[in-house]
Amino acid sequence: MIETKRYFDIRQVENAEVTTYTLMTIDDVELTLTRVQRSSDTDAVLMLHGLSSSSKMFTGREWYNLTCYMIDHGIGDVWLLDWRGSAEYGTKYVHREDSADDVAFKDIPLAVEFIQQQIENGLHIIGHCIGAMTLSMALAKGTIQHVKSAIITSIGLFPKLNNLTTAKLYAVPQLAEKLLDIDYFSMNADQVNPQDGQFMIHQLANLGSNECEHPTCKMLSFVWGTGHESTIFKHKHLPKETHERLEEYFGAVSSSYFRHFQKMLQHQAVVNTDASENYLDQVENIKTPMLLMTGKDNRCWHDAIQEYAKLLDRFFPSVNYEKFVIPDYSHNDVFMGKNAYLDVFPEVLAFIKKYS
């Protein structure tokens, strides 16, 4: 069994320095970039969270998190970007008309260039959910260069949701904007004003059967899934303390992202906001070795990673990738699960070290 440490908080990592940087994008979005460094003699790893989540999914103190695991197992330089869709920013950026393109071509390249100016060795990137999709877009367009390996989790350059979620995605954002006069979805029921349109969305999330009564958990399942089963994780994998504090890990989501996803699902491709560009057409530009990773029981993007791998095999055989489907895991629990350090992290670490 892999030895665990008593510390889980990144600010308690032995012999490591934690530094926070502020980066300003070309469209005036202020981003937070955190560095946890024990050594400058190893390659660096950058971690990208999913939409409505934050870098806390890699630093949560209730489980042996990926940041501490990497530091403990020979990766001495870990970077965490809170891009513009991070829960850490509250509602600061939710009224903007941001899209996945903004993340892929403004946030990620800015952070990668900054990191590469600070480090002496190579850089590897781990992306989850929309962080993985936008990382894939940036690699395909060539807006980031000289990345030694990339871990793409849950979704790459092929989108796939179940039929009910897809149908809901076509209707809910526009209805929310036109009928309820809201342009974002809050995950925290405690912050919802009964006089606000957000209250109606939370009431909709409460309709029907659900395996969990936690209000944030129900809202996450409503926004990202059918609303009738846990979408983001399997409850048995999540630490109890983490589940009780989900509102600390998941925040508000601008409806502008969902309008972009509508275009993608309509065209069955990861496209730009006006659907004039299909990023899969440029996938052969990706020279970075990729690990395509997902939970076998992913209830958010389902088998999007497996279908992406099939497309690569059939049409783009020159793309260098490996695939890791994790038995009995779902979506966020591949990083936030209490046993992920045993079931998932060793494979991630081995892939990074393979290309270090």
Rank of each mutant, 00 (worst) to 15 (best):
T216C: 15
E177P: 01
N163T: 12
K263D: 03
H237T: 11
K287R: 05
N320L: 05
D82A: 03
P289N: 06
F199N: 05
A189C: 04
K5G: 14
T4L: 13
H95A: 12
L66S: 07
A189Y: 12
E247C: 14
N285S: 06
M133R: 14
R61A: 10
I26G: 11
S149A: 09
W224P: 00
E229W: 03
F58H: 10
H302M: 13
Y329M: 11
E248L: 14
S254E: 08
Q198A: 01
Q198V: 03
D297A: 01
G295I: 05
W224I: 12
T4C: 07
W63L: 07
Y329N: 03
N206K: 03
D43S: 15
Y93C: 11
Q195C: 08
K168P: 01
V271R: 02
H128D: 09
I125V: 15
E307S: 12
Q198M: 02
A340Q: 01
H124L: 05
L204R: 11
S318C: 00
E247Y: 13
V45P: 03
H214V: 02
T153L: 10
Q37W: 02
R314F: 05
T242W: 15
M187A: 14
Q282P: 02
V45G: 07
Y257G: 09
D343C: 00
H73V: 06
S255V: 15
G156V: 08
Q203Y: 06
G131D: 05
F199A: 15
I2W: 12
V325E: 10
G122S: 13
A150R: 08
P109D: 06
Q12G: 06
E30V: 13
G337N: 01
G122A: 06
I75V: 15
T165G: 02
L139M: 10
K287N: 11
R61D: 08
Y170S: 02
H235R: 15
Q116C: 08
Y329T: 07
V112F: 04
A309W: 02
A340D: 00
M187F: 07
H243G: 13
D77Y: 09
K310Q: 12
L31S: 11
L220C: 14
G225K: 06
T34P: 04
D181I: 01
A350V: 02
K56A: 13
I144E: 03
T42F: 10
D41P: 07
G50L: 04
A87M: 12
F351H: 00
S136I: 05
A87I: 10
L33R: 09
H214E: 14
Q268M: 06
G122I: 04
A275S: 15
I119A: 07
M200H: 03
M57I: 12
T294C: 02
C68H: 08
M336E: 03
N15Y: 10
P239N: 08
L292K: 09
F316D: 04
E244P: 11
V344R: 01
R11P: 05
D333R: 00
V348A: 02
R299P: 01
A87E: 11
S356G: 05
H73N: 15
S55V: 10
I10P: 14
H146L: 01
L238R: 13
R245M: 09
A176E: 04
E14D: 15
Q118G: 06
I144N: 04
R84Q: 13
H302Y: 09
T166F: 08
F222M: 06
L311Y: 09
